[in-house]
Design a protein around this nucleic acid. Structure first.
Length: 563
DNA sequence: GCCGTTTTCGGCCCGACTGTTTTCAGTCG
């Protein structure tokens, strides 16, 4: 049986949803949801863990440890089977509707016989909902709106799309404003935009109402609108207590809960306005987030780590590990020129690298193979590498071009170019670009075969995912990371906003096993070099310091490493 | 269901906003 942490987490999360629909104790519902999150972000597989080890995990006690063991052994558990039998299958989806929660779902089900979205829509159109006590015309309209919105459900945004939307709103707000929530934490995809502003509500609300497609709600302290199908929340604050508001609105939700628990152990209550002493009732306010961390007896937690993935306990015990910073990056280790499918000449790349302040850039065009236009064969690669030497001699740029290749990992694990060609490269990236649907075992062996190759230095975009378009390939990442550790091969953190591959979970795992990482933009055009910052953010989310990232090293050290 | 530097039982983060309400429940983040 091969049960991944993700699969176990999904079972636990579904139990949580179903318990909620059945009106179970909300704390029990949360217990399952929390356990699901714990398992989802665990840096080692629950499969093979003993009962004691499971129960030592945060939020997992005797009962859920038993469930996890059952799921690992059988792929499911009896509790879930029973809950599913007792629940119309269309019911949990109703929880996703805006304004519809567990209490409402349960009443609609029990009192109107609603068992799915279609029923609900019919009930609303025939005005049955307003017959329920406590429900009215507005609620009915809200439900119809929510169903409509769900039908053209907007997917999560890529980071670049979210940044554009945020910039547009920030520039419209008449006063200082900051981005918060998942965009500030550096999540790879963004659901909605949250902003904190010092601008007065009276001036801001009309402006936002003007640019919004819909106003979800608007009060004295906040306004929520929809722009281009995306939710934008703006919260009003003052410079005197900005710290607590930024902290609260950055989250995550789980992190906020943990922080408030910490405050309670100190006899205080934390909210978005400050810390309240529970005995005197005195409110302490803070201009910065760091002052609040200090007041809670913690080291400051950078936004990228605020997920309740162990950082709170660590910050209570002492300083957190220092994370890589953008200025520490000395070069870009993945880039395509006009020699394959990029748009940049070698001269232009050297120039662009110079203006980024880089010491080096790895020119890593595609190898010739099916599916990639203008990939390089051995002859063209040799000519390109001659041209690279020429540019290094003549460009006058501070930035050295490294002569590399992004060689295809073929379906059987062989590489698309022979060893004698690869050995002449400064650095070799090997990537999967075809045969994405191989099963897990075949795919894992394929990638590990490439990792074991003498001349391969970096595995490019390891899971091959394209956010919102192509799922990750089936890889046993445990085995891949072990193989990378054994062979001294680096894994890439691909900084392209459409990839952001590896995931932060795996970056953390790789680092824990002393696997080196390489950040590359995969740029095909000059402006894409600036995407390096997304790679740095992702590395930080994976708890990465500079020393684990090979392109924070000097050119000499980098060349020494890959030899 | 989980958990313990007051606790192995009795708590469980906290506030904004809305709708259908004369005082609050439900939902959301």
């Amino acid at each position: 049986m091969d049960v991944t942490n993700r699969a176990v987490a999904e079972v636990l999360a579904e139990i949580s949803d179903l318990l909620e629909v059945h009106g179970e104790n909300p704390f029990k519902v949360r217990a399952y949801a929390r356990a699901a999150e714990t398992v989802r972000h665990l840096s080692r597989p629950v499969e093979g863990m003993g009962k004691d080890e499971l129960e030592a995990l945060p939020g997992i006690g005797k009962a859920i440890a038993g469930k996890v063991a059952e799921i690992v052994a059988t792929g499911t558990c009896q509790e879930l089977v029973h809950l599913r039998e007792a629940t119309p299958p269309g019911l949990p989806a109703l929880l996703d509707l805006q304004g519809v929660g567990p209490k409402t779902v349960r009443r609609l089900w029990k009192e109107l016989g609603v068992i799915g979205t279609d029923d609900l829509e019919a009930a609303a159109r025939t005005h049955q909902i307003r017959t329920l006590k406590g429900f009215g015309k507005k609620k009915e309209e809200e439900i119809l709106r929510a169903i409509g919105a769900a039908k053209n459900a907007s997917t999560r945004m890529r980071v670049t799309e979210a940044e554009r939307l945020a910039e547009m709103v920030l520039s419209a707000i008449p006063g200082k404003a900051w981005v918060a929530r998942s965009l500030r934490r550096g999540r790879s995809t963004i659901g909605d935009i949250d902003i904190v502003t010092l601008a007065p509500a009276a001036e801001t609300v009309p402006v936002l109402t003007g640019i919004a497609d819909e106003v979800i709600d608007a009060g004295e302290k906040k306004i929520s609108v929809k722009i281009d199908q995306k939710r934008v929340d703006v919260r009003f604050s003052t410079s005197r207590d900005l710290g607590a508001m930024l902290l609260y609105l950055t989250g995550s939700k789980a992190f906020n809960i943990r922080l408030r628990e910490v405050a309670r152990t100190l006899g205080m209550r934390l909210n978005e306005y400050g810390l309240t002493d529970q005995t005197t009732g005195e409110l302490m306010i803070f201009r910065t987030e760091d002052e609040i961390f200090t007041a809670l007896g913690m080291s400051p937690v950078p936004p990228e780590l605020r997920e309740d993935h162990g950082e709170v306990d660590l910050a209570l015990a002492g300083p957190l590990p220092s994370l890589v910073e953008a200025h520490e990056i000395r070069g870009d280790l993945h880039l395509h020129s006009e020699w394959s499918d990029g748009s940049m000449s070698l001269d232009k790349i050297a120039l662009a690298g110079g203006s980024m302040g880089y010491e080096y850039i790895l020119v890593s065009d595609h190898s010739a193979s099916l599916g990639i236009a203008h990939g390089l064969d051995a002859d063209r690669l040799a000519r390109q590498h001659q041209a690279i030497k020429e540019v290094n001699r003549t460009s006058g740029s501070e930035c050295t071009l490294l002569a590399g290749i992004e060689v295809d990992i073929l379906a059987d694990g062989r590489l698309a170019l022979p060893d004698r060609v690869l050995q002449d490269c400064d650095l070799v990236i090997a990537s999967v670009h075809s045969g994405f649907s191989q099963d897990k075992d075949v795919m894992t062996r394929r990638v590990i075969t490439a990792i074991e190759k003498e001349h391969v230095d970096i595995i490019g975009h390891p899971t091959g995912r394209i956010l919102g378009r192509r799922p990750p390939i089936a890889l046993d990442m445990e085995r891949v990371i072990d193989a990378a550790a054994e062979n001294g091969t680096a894994l890439e953190i691909n900084a392209s906003p459409s990839r952001l591959d590896l995931d932060d979970i795996y970056i953390k795992q790789a680092q824990e096993r002393d696997v080196k990482l390489a950040i590359g933009t995969d740029a095909h055009a000059p402006y894409e070099l600036t995407h390096i910052r997304h790679g740095v953010t992702l590395a930080r989310r994976g708890w990465c310091g500079a020393s684990a990232i090979v392109n924070t090293w000097s050119l000499v050290d980098l060349m020494e490493w890959c030899r």
